[in-house]
Design a protein around this nucleic acid. Sequence first.
DNA 1: CATGAATGAGTCTTCATTCAT
DNA 2: CATGAATGAAGACTCATTCAT
Lengths: 230, 230, 230, 230
Amino acid sequence: MATEGNAAPAGREGDRKKTILRAAIEVFATKGYHGCRIADVAKEAGVAYGLVYHYFKNKDELLQSVFQHAFEGFVGKLRELAASPAPLSEKVQAIADYTFESYRRDPRAVRVLILQIMRSPAIGGANRQNAFVEIIRLNVEMFSQAQRKGELRPDLDPVLAAALLFGTVEMGLTAFVAGLYDAQDPEALARAKQQIAQTFLRGALGAEGSAEAEWKRDKSGTKLKAAKRS
Amino acid sequence: MATEGNAAPAGREGDRKKTILRAAIEVFATKGYHGCRIADVAKEAGVAYGLVYHYFKNKDELLQSVFQHAFEGFVGKLRELAASPAPLSEKVQAIADYTFESYRRDPRAVRVLILQIMRSPAIGGANRQNAFVEIIRLNVEMFSQAQRKGELRPDLDPVLAAALLFGTVEMGLTAFVAGLYDAQDPEALARAKQQIAQTFLRGALGAEGSAEAEWKRDKSGTKLKAAKRS
Amino acid sequence: MATEGNAAPAGREGDRKKTILRAAIEVFATKGYHGCRIADVAKEAGVAYGLVYHYFKNKDELLQSVFQHAFEGFVGKLRELAASPAPLSEKVQAIADYTFESYRRDPRAVRVLILQIMRSPAIGGANRQNAFVEIIRLNVEMFSQAQRKGELRPDLDPVLAAALLFGTVEMGLTAFVAGLYDAQDPEALARAKQQIAQTFLRGALGAEGSAEAEWKRDKSGTKLKAAKRS
Amino acid sequence: MATEGNAAPAGREGDRKKTILRAAIEVFATKGYHGCRIADVAKEAGVAYGLVYHYFKNKDELLQSVFQHAFEGFVGKLRELAASPAPLSEKVQAIADYTFESYRRDPRAVRVLILQIMRSPAIGGANRQNAFVEIIRLNVEMFSQAQRKGELRPDLDPVLAAALLFGTVEMGLTAFVAGLYDAQDPEALARAKQQIAQTFLRGALGAEGSAEAEWKRDKSGTKLKAAKRS
DNA sequence: CATGAATGAGTCTTCATTCAT
DNA sequence: CATGAATGAAGACTCATTCAT
């Protein structure tokens, strides 16, 4: 189509860097940190070997960028969701929805985020730790507020609640990533994200989402706790 | 030959292999798969370079053994717990207890298991997939049985339930590993493992352990749960 | 052809080449042949990367030009001084004066000449060899003539004399370059260049400039050699 | 011949490091800093590529060692000569003799020292500077003492004297290295080293070695200076 | 069993040079 | 003329694995 085109190599220019980054994500997601050789990234991106070094100082910086790319948008959205004025139950469901939606849209990026980056101590120690902690903190704030508003059972530590929400959503997602479910099946994804959110909410609230929480109804019931272990 | 050897340094040997394995776990836990060089392991073990190759065919086998060591006992115990005739709620609590107890006993091994092995696609593909899937399967069986016995709400997919239990426990533990809690504080560990199990149970069952489950109240059948703790 | 151009930045150009050459000298003087990367030269010159290749065919030609620039004027002047009809002692002093004056005027160019080019076997073999040999030859001619005129002791090989003059001046200068003396101190420079020339002359002539040389006084004694060690 | 030998690769073991070092000197001397590729060194030494890295941390350290090796013995001997109680004239001659003797014995090592290391800013800046300065210092001490003992004309700065001695000897040697003289001719070498030392001594003392110095004899003679430029 | 020197293929990284705009 | 993105060959460095002692 290109009116003046004389066989431009690939697509428009300027975002060659993005092409490389995308390729890096692809290779990284597929082969992991080990197998992610610069040569493969270059080949995948359809560029010369040296060009990678034109845009990224070295392999580490490239992988760091992969991290940033995969993490930034995701956490940004999470922060937004967590800060919304909606009731806790809706926010939790929204978080699960968004996570699964992200996965459906770009499985590889999420794979990288979930399977590679989140756990690898090899990726810029600081960032990794921060990644986990940042997501937790995000939710801690949300749960603390919810607790003050009486939306969360008072005996559940907000920090723990945040970790558990993260764990629940992440491992639910992992079930798809690992192939226990068909990641191509929209139905399955939809069902899962709802069950995940609702299960967590029941656990955290003591009763299902919108319903009155059991521990709320049963005012007398300090025994709930007592019963647990007595 | 040589009941005591003639050039044997001092103490008895043979557990030289264990020394190396332990060192491998240490290095693996600290630096991850990438940073785990044979040289480091040898140094950590205070052993000659080449000796590692006397006991392990190659790096992969060594890492496989690390995996085995960290995984075997753990999963074996889990299997045992999951197969016990106890009610689901007790089994879940027992799983959480055991996991945390393992962590308290040998944080590094659990770190390796949780943070490295569980997620790394770089470790003998088969094993990794198996690791995750095996733990899930373990619990799937448990949850399926529980569901047949009416111990688990019928609308929750057993596979998902298994994943969520794993995620809840794992991420709860990760909160300690990541330093959000003081891993040296027995109190904190005890509180956490209980909250984790109970939160999951509330979510999975729809109500707290001994209490009447919401979805049960709606129906006729009250007996199963009531029996558990009464 | 656009008397003033239409997109020409501001001032007139054409000495862009000189800018680059100057930058090359600077970088070359500072980092030596190895560290002298095209990119550095371009940056130092405040010029686009590829522009260097407009004016210089390749790195070698650029460095060759640096060589030319630093060497041409210098040797030209030396040749002139050496060919002058003045007595040897004056010529030698003039050579020392000129060398030090050149250094004072443009230390970097002389640094390059003295420290880099003169010794590097890496710079176009032909040129390098020529550089050293040419300077020597220059002086050889001067000393041969002087010897014929009886201005130089007859037992000193003119070639060696030339090398020694060069060595004396060069190392005297190097003392400044190396920081043993304050290169900013005109006094020190003036004193040095005089002592250097006079010391060489005493050595080459056997006595100071105008004074009667020892070997001259001792007409009988062609046995100079014998005297030396007796 | 090896009584128990079963075709040992090359020579006795243990000094494999020296083999590599020697090879490095060879390659370094021949091709200069640029052309000195690790692969070449390994090949020259007849060892595997990686072995170089077994003994030397990296290329820089290897080249640094080449430097050390070439410099250490040389300077050690110089220090010894300079510190001897012999009269200055003998010491100077001894220094010239030793330098030329070193060259005759191992031209390559001296080539490296004189042509490559002494001038290249690319070789561990500190060491290089130190190399030059250290040699100068060595001689400075010698000349200072000589001056106190009246062996050196009082108007010549010891530091400058040291630099000039170094320059005279070095450039005299360079004449051989550069091919102006036949380096294989013992006669030429012998003549040169003597002329070099004596020329320097005449210059520095104002008269020939053992003879009474002109400036000593002619006490009144301040005119020597005056005559120079009048 | 134990040691650690030796090997070399696999990768990362640099940088001179080209080229489309 | 100017620009700086693109190329790729050259060479440094790592590290799993082998082997003679």
